[in-house]
Computed example of a mutant assay.
Amino acid sequence: MKLTIVGCSGSFPGPQSPASCYLLTAHDGERPWRILLDLGSGALGAVQKYMDLEDIDAIFLTHLHPDHCMDLCGLHVAVRWNPEGWGPGRIPVWGPAATADRLATAYGLPLDPGMREEFDFKLWTEREPVKLGPFTITPYAVNHPIEESYALRVDVEEFDGTGVPRSVTLAYSGDTDSCQGLEDAAKDANFFLCEAAFQEGRDDGIKDVHLTGKRAAEAATRANARRLLLTHLPVWTDPGIVVAEARAAFEGDVAVAVAGVHYTI
């Protein structure tokens, strides 16, 4: 499986990166499948560096804060108004119960039909897996101040050309503070993509919103994840500080996500 960091800036786009968006590509033995985890502010433009928009197989939203979902409004325009037509049909979008209405409101559309002619909205059921091509995506409720917020566990059974499937797991925190759901999502993951928006000592008075590098690493350790990639750092959070915090609490490999970087998992 290939992970592309489309956008990793926390809370709003930064000068070097859009907000949250991650492209996963895997092969099922017949064709490559491409899914997006979140499509936050500014991400739609960057997605087009790596793929044709018509090749999006599905979008999986962790929650409905704009830095994780708002560029679906731009994708709605691309689908609806492409002068050559849109060949693939409606794009499947998994998300919280309010997804369709929230996006329609953001764009100023009537709630019915809203964007339902462009997107096939599907609702998360906590810890109920969704199967799509080589991907199995399972949502875990996490600790963030919005009606529904999820970490996503992505299990992949991929064929690399030898005819023998290879199974790997990526866990993505979405936005959360420490909680059991996060650790369950990341249990034994090969790769843990985890937010670390806050810093120890600076943000201690803010609870139940975001992780620090230290708390992300503690979750990774308890989950027995093998590799930790810190993401969702706002422009005012120092990557060097959160990496140092994380390395003190996690024995595996630790790095910070950078937009445009690819990982093979």
Rank of each mutant, 00 (worst) to 15 (best):
M1K: 01
E84M: 09
W94N: 03
R90M: 08
D160P: 04
E147R: 13
D101T: 11
D177S: 13
S20V: 06
S9T: 13
R222Y: 05
P134Y: 04
S11I: 12
L229V: 14
L3G: 02
E118N: 08
P15T: 13
H232F: 04
M115R: 06
A78W: 00
V77Q: 12
A19E: 11
A249I: 01
A106L: 14
R127E: 14
I265P: 05
T105V: 10
A104I: 05
R247M: 13
I206G: 02
D177K: 00
A26R: 03
F119H: 02
L193E: 02
A78Q: 14
F121A: 07
E157V: 09
V79L: 07
P239W: 10
L36R: 02
G89M: 06
Q180R: 12
L36D: 00
L23S: 05
L123A: 14
G85R: 07
L64E: 03
H232D: 13
P145N: 08
G213A: 09
T136M: 11
L75C: 05
V243N: 09
A100W: 04
D253C: 05
N82P: 07
A255S: 15
A189R: 00
I241G: 00
A171F: 01
L103P: 00
T138K: 11
H27A: 01
P110I: 07
R226F: 03
S17V: 03
G29I: 06
L75K: 03
T169R: 15
D52W: 06
E126A: 15
F191S: 05
L230I: 10
F135I: 04
D28F: 04
L230R: 08
Y140N: 05
Q180T: 12
V47L: 10
